[in-house]
């Protein structure tokens, strides 16, 4: 299935990606943000905060935004 994945860390990409059915939010985080700690990110599905075990649905809009972003 296809979802819109937005990574607001670094380059700030927004991409349509394909994921297997049954993928949870935490699965996607582990896959897309290896080595990162999920508690350091605002994780939203369709603009709403969600539980880490929430199963993603086709067409979902998932965004990962760091809770701390260093200004200059």
């Amino acid at each position: 299935m296809q979802i819109l994945f937005i990574n607001n860390d670094g380059g700030g990409f927004a991409d349509q990606i394909k994921i297997p059915d049954g993928t949870t939010v935490s699965d996607l985080f582990a896959q897309r943000m290896p080595g990162r700690n999920a508690s350091h990110y605002l994780i939203r599905v369709n603009r709403q905060p969600v539980a880490s075990d929430a199963v993603l649905q086709p067409g979902d809009r998932v965004s990962f935004t760091p809770t701390r972003i260093e200004g200059a």
């Binding site: 937005i6 607001n8 700030g12 990409f13 965004s63 200004g71």
Partner: peptide, 23 residues
């Protein structure tokens, strides 16, 4: 903006308003 500069610009130029204000 520091480290947020590029993602801010990407959010704005894509029209992602919630992401822009959140960043």
């Amino acid at each position: 903006e520091g480290r947020g500069a590029v993602s801010l610009r990407a959010a704005l130029e894509s029209g992602r308003l919630v992401d822009f204000f959140t960043i």
